[in-house]
Computed example of a mutant assay.
Amino acid sequence: MVVLLLCTASAVVSAKELSVSLPGNGGYTITPGHSTGIIPLTVYNSITQGQTNWESKSVSSYITTLNVNLNWGNPSNSLQLTIYSPDGYVFGPYYDSSDGVTDGRIDLTIQNSNGIAEGTWSYKVYGYSVSGTQTYSI
């Protein structure tokens, strides 16, 4: 199979943008998370209206639960989150209210009784409706 990417100086296409989601859910269930207390910052970044940032988390051992917590703390701005598993599944997009609360945070729990895929989980964070610049952690 040959893949041809055409890029100009003003538009670069990410390989993740070209990925195809596998059918079904791979045994994964995604539910609102219940993170409480201080959550260690994996990534701290900022985003503007219409901007896309790619973040990632490495899973290197057998686990059955993965917590994903995108937190920007300002419900007047809206971010969008799409999650890409290393075994080819795409989850989302998710918005502020996807976890049941509009609070400037998307808090999700991903579970798979067969185990969460080991490898790099990618998170596409999109500035869906942002006034100025919005900082976030994930």
Score class of each variant (00 low, 15 high):
residue 59 V to T: 04
residue 84 Y to D: 03
residue 111 Q to E: 11
residue 30 I to E: 03
residue 71 N to R: 02
residue 3 V to F: 10
residue 86 P to K: 03
residue 10 S to N: 11
residue 90 V to W: 00
residue 40 P to F: 14
residue 119 G to A: 05
residue 32 P to G: 13
residue 136 Y to F: 07
residue 36 T to E: 15
residue 129 S to C: 01
residue 7 C to G: 03
residue 130 V to W: 02
residue 107 D to H: 04
residue 73 G to C: 13
residue 87 D to Q: 00
residue 127 G to M: 04
residue 11 A to F: 15
residue 82 T to D: 04
residue 90 V to K: 02
residue 100 G to W: 14
residue 25 N to R: 12
residue 111 Q to N: 11
residue 4 L to R: 14
residue 128 Y to F: 11
residue 117 A to I: 05
residue 41 L to M: 11
residue 85 S to R: 00
residue 32 P to K: 14
residue 119 G to H: 04
residue 109 T to E: 08
residue 59 V to N: 03
residue 30 I to H: 03
residue 104 G to N: 12
residue 51 Q to F: 09
residue 127 G to Y: 02
residue 50 G to A: 14
residue 21 S to Y: 01
residue 88 G to W: 03
residue 97 S to E: 12
residue 83 I to P: 00
residue 111 Q to H: 11
residue 72 W to N: 02
residue 40 P to H: 12
residue 67 N to M: 13
residue 57 K to Q: 15
residue 78 S to R: 09
residue 130 V to E: 04
residue 105 R to M: 12
residue 101 V to H: 15
residue 116 I to T: 03
residue 98 S to Y: 06
residue 46 S to A: 14
residue 56 S to G: 09
residue 80 Q to M: 07
residue 90 V to R: 01
residue 136 Y to L: 03
residue 59 V to W: 02
residue 137 S to W: 08
residue 79 L to C: 02
residue 24 G to N: 05
residue 58 S to D: 10
residue 51 Q to A: 12
residue 96 D to K: 01
residue 92 G to C: 06
residue 59 V to Q: 04
residue 35 S to M: 09
residue 50 G to F: 15
residue 42 T to H: 07
residue 52 T to V: 13
residue 111 Q to M: 08
residue 10 S to A: 13
residue 4 L to G: 14
residue 49 Q to Y: 10
residue 40 P to N: 13
residue 133 T to C: 04
residue 28 Y to M: 11
residue 102 T to Y: 15
residue 95 Y to F: 08
residue 131 S to V: 08
residue 118 E to Y: 08
residue 113 S to C: 10
residue 46 S to N: 13
residue 47 I to P: 00
residue 46 S to M: 15
residue 121 W to R: 01
residue 42 T to I: 06
residue 14 S to F: 08
residue 31 T to K: 14
residue 69 N to G: 07
residue 94 Y to W: 06
residue 13 V to Y: 07
residue 110 I to E: 00
residue 105 R to Y: 06
residue 91 F to N: 01
residue 121 W to M: 05
residue 128 Y to E: 06
residue 49 Q to D: 07
residue 71 N to L: 06
